[in-house]
Design a protein around this nucleic acid. Sequence first.
DNA 1: TCTTAAATATGATTTAAATCATGTTTTCAA
DNA 2: TTGAAAACATGATTTAAATCATATTTAAGA
Lengths: 144, 144
Amino acid sequence: MLSNSAKYALKAVLYLSLNSNEEEKLMTKDISEKINVPKSYLAKILQDLSRHGVIASSKGPKGGFYLHDNNKKISLIDIIEVIDGKQRLSSCILGFHECDSENPCVLHDIMGGANNQFVKSLEETTLEDLIADLSEGSSVFPVD
Amino acid sequence: MLSNSAKYALKAVLYLSLNSNEEEKLMTKDISEKINVPKSYLAKILQDLSRHGVIASSKGPKGGFYLHDNNKKISLIDIIEVIDGKQRLSSCILGFHECDSENPCVLHDIMGGANNQFVKSLEETTLEDLIADLSEGSSVFPVD
DNA sequence: TCTTAAATATGATTTAAATCATGTTTTCAA
DNA sequence: TTGAAAACATGATTTAAATCATATTTAAGA
Ligand code: FES
Ligand code: FES
C-alpha cells in the first residue's frame, strides 16, 4: 500500500511539523535518531521532499530541515506521491488495474471501498489536521 | 498489505474453485496462462497451498490441482496466511506495531479502522461467498 | 578568507521478493 | 513393465527496494 520510504517520509515530515520552524532547524541525524530510521536512507528521502518543496532546507552550518507554516497546509497525499508516485496508492488490491467502484474486483466489496476511502482521506487531511489530533491526545505518533 | 504471491494465490484458488473438481483437475500451466502468472512461480505457490491442505492435488498423468467441496468452505484469510504468514496483514500502516484501535497511530483514524475491518472480512468470507458474488455478477474476477 | 558544518548528488552494496530452471517422485495407461 | 505426464523439491538467478558510503556544494562564523 505505502512503501517503506513513504512511511518514513510521513514520520519525518510529521516530526518536523512538531519540532521545527524557521529558527529551529533539524539535521538529518537528529530526525533519524528520533524517528528510528537509518540516517543516510532518510537523508535521501528528505532531499527528495525538499527538492519537491514539501519541506524547506538550508545548507551549511546552522542549516537543516524545517517547515514553513504553509508547508503545514499540505495534504498527506502530496507527501506520499513525491515518494511513491501516483500509481501505487490507487491500485486495486488484486493489482490488476486502478481500484474502481464502477468495475469492482472480487475483493473490492470486502474492502468496503476502503482503498478509495483511504486515498480520499489522504487528500483531505493536512498536516495541521494531524497535529490537531495529536494535541487532543486522540492518537499517537509512533516512532518504532 | 498483501504480497504479490498472496494475490496470485487468491486468484489461483478462485480460478480453481470456478473451474475444477475431482473429475476435472487443472495443471499449473493451464492455470498460469488463464490468470496470467508466471508458470514456475505459480507452481511453487500451488505446492505450498497443497502442502497446507488449502487445495488438493494428484500426481502423474491426468493429475493436477483441484478443490474438494470442503475446500470451498475455507475463508480467505487461510489462503493468505499460508503464503504471507500471520504478521503482515495485521500490522499498522505506519508499520510500528500491530494495528490496534485501542492504541491508534496518527493515521489510524484516517484509515477508518479499515485495516482491522479488512482482516475481519477476510476471516468471515469464504470462497463460496465469493463465488456467489461472481455468479450474481456483482463483481468481476480479474486476470490481468 | 578559511575552516567547518550542513545539505546535495551520485553511485555502490545489501536484502528480500519475484522469477526461473532442473532434477526427483509418483501414477496413469499402453 | 515401462514411458510419459504430472506434482514435488530444491536451488539459482533476477529485480527492485532498502540501505550504505562518499565526494561535492553551500553558507555561517571566526
Ligand atoms: S477494484 Fe480491486 S480493490 Fe477495488
Ligand atoms: S494503529 Fe496504525 S493503522 Fe491502526
